[in-house]
Design a protein around this nucleic acid. Sequence first.
DNA 1: CCCAAACTCCCGTTTTCAGGGGATAAACAG
DNA 2: CTGTTTATCCCCTGAAAACGGGAGTTTGGG
Lengths: 210, 210
Amino acid sequence: MKIKVFIVDDHFMVIEGLRALLQGAADIDFTGHATNAASCLAYLKKEQPDVILMDINLPDQSGIDLCKHVNENYPEIAVLAVSSFNQRSFIQNMLDSGAKGYVLKNVTQTELWQAIRAVAIGKTWVSAEVVQTLRQRQPDRPVITRREKEVLECIAQGLTNPQIAEKLFVSITTIESHRKNLLHKLNVNNTASLVRQAFYYEFISIQNEK
Amino acid sequence: MKIKVFIVDDHFMVIEGLRALLQGAADIDFTGHATNAASCLAYLKKEQPDVILMDINLPDQSGIDLCKHVNENYPEIAVLAVSSFNQRSFIQNMLDSGAKGYVLKNVTQTELWQAIRAVAIGKTWVSAEVVQTLRQRQPDRPVITRREKEVLECIAQGLTNPQIAEKLFVSITTIESHRKNLLHKLNVNNTASLVRQAFYYEFISIQNEK
DNA sequence: CCCAAACTCCCGTTTTCAGGGGATAAACAG
DNA sequence: CTGTTTATCCCCTGAAAACGGGAGTTTGGG
C-alpha cells in the first residue's frame, strides 16, 4: 500500500518541485495538489491522503489554521509542513497546530522521502536545521500582562499618559504605574528605548497606521 | 537555436520546480543549475547560458550582487529574477542591478516561458503583480539629514539630550533643535511616536543591540 | 559668487516623564 | 484558605522633553 501524498502550496513551482522530488519513490504516490486552503478542504471531503505537504503561507488562510482544521477533522492525516522559514515562531506554531513534521524548502530528495515515511506511520520528523533553531535558547522575552500590552500600544502610538488614561477609562496614575512596570520589565529607563524594545520583542508591530 | 537556461537557487525544490516548468518548451534548453553564487560563477567561466533564472536569497552572496557581477562580466547573459517577494525594495534592487526581468515564484508555466523568451531577446519582462507593486505610490518618506539621522539613532538607543550632546560633541540646545526638526519632519509630537516612525520609515532598524 | 540648506547655539515656559515611596480590591492558583 | 499576581489608585520631586521664538556660521551646488 503506497503512501498517498497531497500537496498544498500556492506556488506552482513548489508543487512541481515537490512532485519531481517525489518521483522515483516506489512507496509514495502523489495524489493531487491545491493552491489554497479552500480547495484543499474541498478535496479532503472526497478523498483523504495519508500525508499532506503544506506550506505556511496560503493565499486564503494561514497554513497554521488549515493544519489545525485538518487535525481536528481528519486526525488520521499527517501534516508535514514544508516552509522556507527556519524561524522559531513558525515552527512552533505549526507543530502546536498538529503538524507531524517540519522540513525546509531546501530539503533533499532523500530527506523528503524519509520525512514522509516517518509522518505516515505517526512518527515526527523535523529537519536537522530546524532542530538547531528550536534548540537555540530564545532571548528571555519579558512577560507583560494584557493591560500592560494595551498601555504599551498606546504609548507607541504617541499618546501621553493623560490621553491613555482617558482612552482606557482609568486614572492617570494608573497609567503611570503601568508605565513604571513596563520600564522595569523591559529593563529600560525612558520612552524611546521602551518603544524600541517593544518592537524588538514584537509586543508591537509596525503595521498600525499613523 | 534553443535558449540555454541556467538556474541559481539554493532550494532543490525550486530547481526541480523550474525544471519541470521548463519541460515541454521546444525552444528552451535547461543547461544546469547552481545552489550558490560561487558555483554559478565557476560555471560561467566555462559555459555561458542565454538566460539565468536567479533567486534573490543565495547562501553565500545576495542575488543582487551576483546579478551585478554577471551584468558587468557577461553582458550578453540575461538575468531573470525569480523571487517569492513582491516587495518594492527587492524588485527595484534587482532591476537596478541589471536584471532583465522579475517574476514571482507562483509564476505559471506559460508566463515563465514568455518571460524567458522575452529576456532572451533583450526585452524586459515583469509580472503583472510586480508591475502593480511598482505602481503603488510609495509613502512620502521624509528627507532627513545625516546629522538628524545620527541624533535619531541616539534617541532610539535611549540616550537623553544631554547624553547625545556629549556623544556628538555639541551643545544640548543643538540636540534640542535637531529633535525639534525631526518631530516636524516626521509629523509627530513626542519621543514615542518619533521612534515608531523612525522604524516605519526604516531610518533605523532593530538590529542594534540593547 | 551667492543662496539655501545644514548645522550650530541660545532663551523662556509648560507639559510630560522617571523615580521613589506607598496602598487596596479582585482574581487566580496552589 | 492563603499568598501572589494583576489592576487600580495616590503623593512628591527633579529631570527631560515639547513648543515657541530667534540667530549666527559653514558648506555645497547652481
